[in-house]
Design a protein around this nucleic acid. Structure first.
Length: 262
DNA sequence: ATGGCCAATATGATTGGA
């Protein structure tokens, strides 16, 4: 079983790249973020033609998440609990059945939070509190669960080429990193860090200022595994080469292989 | 972390992203 996540930065602009990547990496389940279109406008057909069931939760202009699954969905639930006034399309949970039981995937697009001196930053922190609440509840099920998506969090200095440049940024401020640690410390395993302590593992390179050419990247897209998922972790990786394709997203895919028969 | 970008919007300027 292979599960992946990718912030595509507009699914309409990324159909060709997304299809090419799905053919190459062949995930059983793929989570997309920043689809940036309403549900009726989501280009489902190219993905259904590859054998995926497609569930979308989008909105006009911004945000938007989607889950593609070769396994049929048992259940899909949009919206992170606890945000009555939150109308951002940032969260879509999916449950599927494997030969060894249920597998649950939360596809999430955590708020950026910049600039920090505006109400965007408290919105980010509150969203993280809600995510922690959701995760705590789901862990009680003692099932394989993966939180997959664009967390907009640089966990530590090894996760940025130039960490000093991020000290005042919402992605790296101490409260952001503290809440991410609190989430992980509920019992999750960061799939990429479980495989490597290497510096230079990034998932985002800005379009500006030649960031890609200088390898001025950050690691902000993560896959957090519940104990029952981490126990079955075989491999993980970052598809960095996708950033060099024509018409790239500024993010690249992250994937995990689990010892779970589909 | 800005010189340099990209995407969406009834669009030729503004907003959001990270």
């Amino acid at each position: 079983m292979r599960v992946a996540t990718w912030n595509v930065n507009s699914i309409k602009q990324r159909v060709d790249n997304a299809v090419a990547w799905l053919k190459e990496r062949e995930p059983d389940i793929a989570c997309f973020q920043e689809t940036k279109c309403v549900d009726e406008a989501f280009p489902r057909e190219p993905f259904e033609a590859l054998g995926y069931n497609v569930k979308v939760h989008g909105q006009k202009t911004f945000n938007g998440v989607a889950v593609l699954s070769k396994l049929p969905f048992d259940e899909t639930t949009p919206r992170l609990p606890g945000g009555d006034s939150d109308d951002h399309a940032r969260f879509l949970e999916a449950a599927v059945s494997t030969k060894s039981g249920a597998l649950r995937i939360a596809c999430l697009y955590l708020p950026n939070g910049n600039p920090p001196n505006t109400d965007k930053y408290p919105y980010k922190l509150k969203w993280m509190d809600r995510l922690i609440g959701y995760a705590r509840e789901r862990l009680e099920l003692e099932e394989p669960l993966i939180l997959a998506g664009d967390f907009n969090v640089i966990p530590g200095p090894a996760d940025a080429r130039v960490p000093e440049a991020w000290t005042g940024d919402a992605l790296y401020l101490p409260p952001t990193r503290e809440k991410f640690r609190a989430l992980v410390n509920l019992g999750f395993t960061d799939a990429v860090r479980a495989a490597s302590d290497d510096a230079g593992l990034y998932t985002f390179w800005d379009y500006q200022a030649g960031a890609w050419q200088k390898n001025n990247g950050i690691r902000i897209d993560h896959m957090l595994m519940s104990p029952q998922a981490a126990d079955r972790l075989v491999a993980s990786g970052i598809d960095k080469h996708v950033r060099a394709w024509a018409k790239p997203s500024d993010h690249v895919p992250v994937w995990v292989d689990l010892d779970i028969d589909v």
